[in-house]
Design a protein around this nucleic acid. Sequence first.
DNA 1: CTGAAAGCGCTTACAG
DNA 2: CTGAAAGCGCTTACAG
Lengths: 354, 354
Amino acid sequence: MTGPVDGRAEGAAPPGAAGDLTMEDVAAAAGVSRTSVSRVMLGQKKVSEETRRKVFAAAERLGYVPNVLASELASRGTSTIGLLLRDAANPAYGLLFTQLQEAAHAADLTLVSMTITADDRGRRQVASLHRLMGMRVAGLIVATGGVTSEQLEPFRARIPIMRAGRPETTDVIHAVSYDEQHAGRTLADHVAAARHRDVAVLVTAESESFPEYVRATAMAAALAGHGVRIIPVPVRSDPRDGVGEVVSLAREGRVTAIMCPSDYRQLEVLRALAAAGLSVPRDVSVSGCDGVLWGADLLGLTTYRIPVEQLAARTVSHMARLIAEDTPAGVVSERLAGALVPGRTVGPPSNEES
Amino acid sequence: MTGPVDGRAEGAAPPGAAGDLTMEDVAAAAGVSRTSVSRVMLGQKKVSEETRRKVFAAAERLGYVPNVLASELASRGTSTIGLLLRDAANPAYGLLFTQLQEAAHAADLTLVSMTITADDRGRRQVASLHRLMGMRVAGLIVATGGVTSEQLEPFRARIPIMRAGRPETTDVIHAVSYDEQHAGRTLADHVAAARHRDVAVLVTAESESFPEYVRATAMAAALAGHGVRIIPVPVRSDPRDGVGEVVSLAREGRVTAIMCPSDYRQLEVLRALAAAGLSVPRDVSVSGCDGVLWGADLLGLTTYRIPVEQLAARTVSHMARLIAEDTPAGVVSERLAGALVPGRTVGPPSNEES
DNA sequence: CTGAAAGCGCTTACAG
DNA sequence: CTGAAAGCGCTTACAG
């Protein structure tokens, strides 16, 4: 902490004066060439112990941090991989985000992420996508449905791109996703096994949330297979959509169970049911999907736990391989199944129904 | 989509062959100079409509995306601001993350974030910090206690650095934080008002979570002010720490209320209480803190909602100002208060106690 | 309005 | 083991 070479004072350092420390500065301070500084910073072998020591000392003293922009530009390579994420406020995405970070770290890959908020479909997503591509990331993980396969198309040949969490339909882009079919089917089997014969299913529009759409559709199909009468209630993104309707159906005794394609929706239904004075599961059973909510067990939610951790690990390991590989083999396409989480919100139908 | 200038085929584009599209390529394709392409891409005024059109057409056709590394290196400037985040699996941090993204977007700032997982204090945090500094971000938002003020010190003079969400003690780094004192006090007042006279308080070690430590300490102080007898139970990071102990205290009738410095801990306590056959709030009252859990209302949690949205907005607006400012004015230091969320987990003490 | 040229801060063969 | 020099893909005065 003594004798700053460049005249910058320690302690209350002059604001803008910081200029920008350069390898040149470190080289001068250490009394070696720029090349040597570079070698040391890159941790290359062929450097004498003495040089290494001098360089580290100088760098430390000056508070030098290599400019990664210049570094990556010169070496035309990042090990950084980009992540396009959807609103992390959604617990499932927040968890996925964390898990991806951890997996990436374990694989010694750095993740740089940009989030996209739902309220702005299209333009903003693409801007973020371009920004990430502009950073010349080594690979891209797309964990949002907001970016279409067509928008990814132009970059497919440049770097490995993987969808994470969303069923990919094109079969030309790598994807590891949740087995939403299995989720829907499993939940439906559970409800049918509880002997419900009249069930309302919230069906999210395909364009609003593809995963929810697939789940709901699978639920309906499985229920039908069990000979259950279904009342589909189409909904959009808003988790309160259709809630009033299913509550009415329950109150009128037209259904004994309500199946939701996500836990947020399930929570909304539970709230509305409570407000309407209906008891769960006595008056009506309710199920959701996701299983990542914090107090879900205390609430006794009946749901399906999606394998977030596994998905993150698989995504990253595939990505690592794709980056390392010279010739891309086939297209990755994995579907990961989770498991039913039986709760207290599903029980047998009461017999008081009409 | 016709006649790729560089011989790259459309459709199933040759993998590695992508080389890297350069401004030069676009210039050639458009029949103008590199300078003109640059001007167009930067959206500068002094370019003829014709040139602009040709450049855009060529860029579009080739699928060109400017290399931001080179761009920022040459212009020595990013508008990108770095975010050092703590494990986003924690709902409070996940929400903060999203809100920061939104606020940044509204302020036309790009956020690039790196997450740090709790299991690796120190080294990894610093590595991420350095990486972000290496990217020469225009500013840095630190939303994790894992990085100390000393570690930030060397960079304080280079770019604006702001703590978000953590009470900063040094008074030399900008910070906008939650008013944890207010949180603790408010909750304690609520519990005392319910006439509890013997209360267990989970007190997180200062080194494990400073915010929780401050909350808990404030709770204890406020309770003491009300003449309440306190049994402090020291805990570490693990949310299950101390849970067994407070449950025993409750079972033995030595306390009629348990105050937790976070909602995760509250959930753990509720689980353990249920497992022990104790009823809440009949046998014992419980409170938490954070208020960001999804089904908190359904659970009837008694908690304190921290103003995440407001914190994100303030942080970003200060950051935007600091970046724009030539001469840094004073040190930002804001504390934001939230509000009590009364729930069903706190009630008057039963009179059956010893 | 347009271009040739220098420079941003690094890395990397290439010679010592 | 060490350095001088060219080059990474852009931007930006500077002259037209």
